[in-house]
Design a binder for these strands. Sequence first.
DNA 1: AAGTGGTCTAGACCACTCT
DNA 2: GAGTGGTCTAGACCACTTG
Lengths: 248, 248
Amino acid sequence: MPPRQEAVASGGPLFSPLYLQIKRLIITSLQAGEWKAGDAIPSEQDLAGRFGVSQGTVRKAIDELAAENLLVRRQGKGTYVATHAEQKVQYRFLRLMADEGPVALERQLLDCKRQRAPAAIARRLQMRAGEPMVEVRRLLHSKGQPVVLDDIWLPGDLFKGLTTELLNQHKGPFYELFETEFGVHMIRAEEKIRAVAADAESAALLQLPLGAPLLSVERLSFTYGDKAVELRRGLYSTDSHFYRNVLN
Amino acid sequence: MPPRQEAVASGGPLFSPLYLQIKRLIITSLQAGEWKAGDAIPSEQDLAGRFGVSQGTVRKAIDELAAENLLVRRQGKGTYVATHAEQKVQYRFLRLMADEGPVALERQLLDCKRQRAPAAIARRLQMRAGEPMVEVRRLLHSKGQPVVLDDIWLPGDLFKGLTTELLNQHKGPFYELFETEFGVHMIRAEEKIRAVAADAESAALLQLPLGAPLLSVERLSFTYGDKAVELRRGLYSTDSHFYRNVLN
DNA sequence: AAGTGGTCTAGACCACTCT
DNA sequence: GAGTGGTCTAGACCACTTG
């Protein structure tokens, strides 16, 4: 006897299948931190019992969450909360490729300071101008050559203890640190890509001539519930690297 | 009594579930042109009967094909072969967005001529240098301003009757024409994106100063069976437009 | 051997489209 | 009302991992 469709307020969605409701409940648990990044969630049988539905229904919910990269299935072991910390998928959101050979990037932190939110930045993050933020600037090097200049803006209230020291002593990707230290999980992002000419500062840092063409990659990252929590602008030198995209 | 796993040659895949075998069979039918772009394929029940499996197994095969945009499901109506001709998804592979308002593009054909394949182009398309090809050049305009300069290379043997007249009298996207006139169906593409400086010719055509930064989008398009059938290099002016990408 | 995810089936019923 | 895809169930068995 499965839970049946409840009456809905007029104007709302007319029909929501059970598995989507289960999916919602799982996302809510993820959002609440009931299972942390890298943890195994309960087995499909357990969840089916907890929610009072069949295993097949839980399975379909998890299928969608796995397709969206919120969960990772491992046959014979269990289902795990996706993380940016795994060796296999480091830099999950970075689409940069090298013309030859693999990309091995070293990080160089330039700056990390607390700032008041400029209006343009605040708007994209659904914040008010003047609210406290953290701005991080850094370089990524490949084989000793600077390739990416990043300018990262984060809401100050979510990243209270973020300091230069913390960033420097951490080895993996920023997004791993954000998960472990601040419980902020980046699950989705949108990028706007343009070609721009290098200004004096960018040119100097990337060791390119003034006016050299650069890829400008503006990334807005979201956590659970479609909440924007990071605005990042990267300038990519594309002499020996490129941005790779796959279309279906 | 479902068909069971057959013995496999050593070194081959050790296990291929039924639904993947069904998926293969459906792709084969698509490739053979048994169902044309826009057509409905047989119902799940029909296919289940034809292949001697349950509806659920056919369903899972179709699920994957729909996720890969090879098929489109329409509840209550049937399952259809995806096409580039539909109004709703015109320019399926074009990630260009306008800063404000929707993108409405007009096409201007510059050139269409038969050429021998240059070595660099031939290699990407798994052809030999000197083989016959068609080169098409065109501009896309938005509100009267040139925005995209495309240089398109196609294998000559697949596009025998492709002429300037045919391209000019056709109204929709090129990929629609390729489907209806040549039976070539683009199902997937890979793009390499760089920032470059406009050379004299590009600058003139896009009405920009010499050396203006442009987005260089090199697209390799594939048809069924991972066969590369188009190499396209687009130069995008990103003053009032941008390339949009979504990361999961 | 036990536990997990993965496959497959058969059947019932629901939501949607068209006639 | 007939036909299609969409949901849900219950049960059996397979593939994989770990103790």
